[in-house]
Structure formats: structure tokens, C-alpha cells
Amino acid sequence: MQILVVDDDPLAGEMIAAVLEEEGHQPVLASSAIEGMEKLNEEEAIGLVISDMNMPLVNGIDFFRELREQGNQLPFILLTGDDPQKASEQEAGLDACIMKDFSLDESLPGVLNQVLGNSSRSS
């Protein structure tokens, strides 16, 4: 599956991409929400969005809300360097919200499968 990865820190973006590739997915990288939006318009095959929370101009939650407003219903996983609990409380519509840390290579695949399972069941 093609997965959009949005992170303003290119290093973090590539590490997330590495985890996704390990799982057999094809990551599409964007360094901002705006670039992410462009990528979504270009690549119709993208089936999921993973975005960093804290980014300049448009943050992860605003990006999520913008997508939903535009009618985009792709599953959305928010990564954050701060407390994930707080972000979930801020936006209940998020499919998942996880801490961006060194255990990402274990936590992310699990959450990914869970989210994909949920969305296939609901659709």
C-alpha cells in the first residue's frame, strides 16, 4: 500500500519510511501539510496518511481537519514528539495517535494493522 508520510524533519520522515518499507509498504514523503496535500492529489493510490504533529504553518491536527473538511476519509495516524494522550483529546476523529520514539519500528506496524483492520471492517 502507498502511505503518505508528512514530517518537517527529513530524518524522522526517512526513519518512518524505513519502518514502513520493512513492512512491505511504499511510503510517499512530504515535508509539510501543504506538500502532503499535493501528493494526495497526485497519487490516487495512497491509502493512508501518517503525519507528524508539530510542524510549521499547518500542524498535524489542522492537516487532519482540513482533509476531513475536503471530504477525504483516508485513515490518519498522528505521530507526536509530545504526549499522544493530549493530541487524541484535542481531536477525537484521529484513527490513532502514537509517540514518535525509538520503539516506532514496533509500535507503528501494530497500530497500522489495527487501523487498516478497522477501516476495512467499517467500509
Binding site: D8, D9, A12, M15, D52, N54, G81, K100, D101, F102
Partner: peptide, 15 residues
Amino acid sequence: FRAAHTLKGSSRMLK
């Protein structure tokens, strides 16, 4: 702030 934040984020991913 962003510089410190990004350092925090990427360093955490590398433990």
C-alpha cells in the same frame, strides 16, 4: 523552539 523540538523528536527516534 522548532530547532530544539526537532532535535528532541529525531533524537528520541534514535534512542
